[in-house]
Design a protein around this nucleic acid. Structure first.
Lengths: 140, 140, 140, 140
DNA sequence: GTGGTCTAGACCACA
DNA sequence: GTGGTCTAGACCACA
């Protein structure tokens, strides 16, 4: 799958997985009814202990994003996209809110902030475009 | 002093102090040569374990923001403002970077993001204006 | 047949089948000597793995509710009703016992409990009445 | 503390702890602001691995019943009693609902059920009375 | 001292 | 095959 895990860093591994699954659902990459990789398989791919994956999946279950089919695996809940979009919005809004609060309380001007924001937005949009083109070869 | 500490929440207390001191220096609220409250005094004011304050001050010392006058307390280093402004810039840029990354990977459009950013910027600028007026009594 | 299976939820499918068969025998809906659908047929009807059905039937056999007519299918044992009524009584008593224990240890009063019980009893009795009328066409 | 854990049985240990904490809060035995025993201490008392306790506490945290004070322990949230009472009500109602459904679908009459319920209620109320007297010696 | 994370590995029920 | 539970034990940040 499409996870990119940073085993160091301050964000726990299981949290990174939870977040990335939610964002993928919000983005429409993962859709309702779709199966997610099994705990063991994902643990193998990411070279991470399966307990850690299981914990992420459990949290996603209690957040009503995934659903367990006993003995067969786990799927994305049909109604997950609403919740994930909402979660994404909170996540982003919180991040923006905190960054702005730091900026303003540190004396950064609105204009400096706007420049920083626009530059970063352009940079990341370009990167996203690139990777879309790279993976979408031949589909035109 | 002017700290606002959230004893719960995910950010460690000592780090909140470090951050707030740096931002205050960057903003010019704390200036070179100025004394900061003693560990004991600040611990008392904030009702926080003094080990926690001490740790924050240690970090600020090793980041060359504060300097100890042996036996007489700690002051803001004359050259701290450069470093603090730089730190502020990194902090804000990182926050913006992460928020944008989450947003885009979650399928939020650039336009939605820009709206969110501008709305939040306006809101916080207005709040900052308010509190400046409130505390600026007599300056007219 | 009359099964209502919930493939999710905490009760294993095979156990739902076992339970529903026993209750049907206790109720007189299934009577001694009557044939039950074959594993394959029931698996088809319920869209469930036939291993799961087989496991349920095995358990019903070892509980002496069903008996196998070699090669010709399975029937309800003549003497099953006694056992099933007993099983039903244990099942219900255990459920009531646990619910009361939770209620009392959670500070619910006897009066609140009684109300809850009577309300639910009335509701379910009414529903049962309804469905009896609905299915009992022609009996007037 | 007052936990009674059944290490066998179908209910997972961590779930038993979660449930008992919630019921204790609903009952007023645990009140807002009160500290719960530390993970290690409870693990020792119950002779259960501390990871299992930690898992229960984590679930209670995400259910907003407990709150972690970094480095100091965990407390019952001030607003937990509302949620716990609600949880208790759902728990009990579900139990009653299921027991009645089994009973009626197994041909038990309303009268038999009522007798069973009242007998059990009386039995458990008496037991509760007993243990209250036993622990409340001398307080009159 | 406190809780939180992660690993390795065992064992289980279910399908 | 699947997920779920539990243990033992290590290591970490925080107060």
């Amino acid at each position: 799958m499409f996870f990119s895990i940073d085993a160091d860093g301050d964000v726990p591994i299981y949290e990174q997985i939870v977040r990335q699954v939610k964002l993928a659902v919000a983005d429409g990459i993962l859709v309702g009814g779709q199966m997610v990789p099994s705990v063991r398989q994902l643990a193998g791919e990411l070279a991470i202990n399966s307990n850690t994956i299981a914990r992420a999946y459990q949290e996603l279950q209690s957040d009503r994003v995934l659903e367990s089919l006993r003995g067969r695996g786990m799927i994305v809940r049909r109604d997950a996209i609403k919740r994930c979009t909402k979660a994404r919005n909170s996540l982003v809004a919180d991040g923006v809110r905190r960054a702005l609060a730091d900026a303003l309380s540190g004396g950064m001007t609105a204009e400096e902030l706007r420049e920083l924001f626009e530059a970063e937005l352009e940079r990341q949009s370009a990167m996203a475009e690139q990777s879309k083109l790279a993976s979408g070869n031949g589909a035109s």
